[in-house]
Amino acid sequence: MNWQAMKSIYLFEMARTRRTLLQSIVSPVLSTSLYFIVFGSAIGSRIQNIEGVSYGSFITPGLIMLSLLTLCISNGSFGIYFPKFTGTIYELLSSPVSMPEILVGYVGAAASKGLIVGAIILGTAYFFVDVTIQHPLLMITFFVLTAITFSLLGFIIGIWATNFEQLSLIPSLVIPPLTFLGGCFYSINMLPPLWQTVSHFNPVLYLVSGFRWSFYGISDVNPWISLAIIIAFLGVCLVLVSWMFRTGYRLKS
């Protein structure tokens, strides 16, 4: 194992965050605070409690997931796409580094950034609403698994993308509808039966719901199914990325 190389990639990527502090940390925290002010305090005070939880508290896990998914995908994809775009990828390919080591470096850094921002948002939430975490161990499991899985998805997108348009396609066009319609801001029990059924095909529902269960013990779906689904999705991403590495897909001719 080339530990030194993994560490170098990880630290190099983390250093990029320091340079773009405003964009990578301040901006997601600001936008989430705005959600708390608008939905939590202003509008939320007029919305009745959902299964005994105030609306502001109810949306907190969903908001963390929303930021976590978006950030992990964009960090994960940008990290590997940028060297492809500038051509510095030659260096990764000609170094004594294996593909899995490259993966650990980039995905590790992207997931770390997502987790840092997620933790800051959670901290911010305490200022606006009441937050309790009933199952901390499960909460951390969901938190970390989601960060890793979606950073990995980002990494796959970064390898697949051949231009900036494709790079932002999934994070900007696919993820927002999935998260907004995945029960970030409501319980799917509030929907008509047809839409409840449709919602069950949205994978993000399981993430948000399971994560919320670890906070308040309320959930639209069985939290263990949630956990199984995220692990299965992680498995799919791993199979895909190992195929990419084996064939050198869009990395190596």
């Binding site: 080339n2 530990w3 030194q4 190389a5 560490k7 170098s8 990639i9 190099f12 250093a15 260096e91 990764l92 170094s95 004594p96 580094v97």
Partner: peptide, 11 residues
């Protein structure tokens, strides 16, 4: 940084 990074990549 970029030169130090290259050294690290090579283990």
């Amino acid at each position: 940084n970029t030169v130090s990074f290259s050294r690290g990549l090579h283990g």
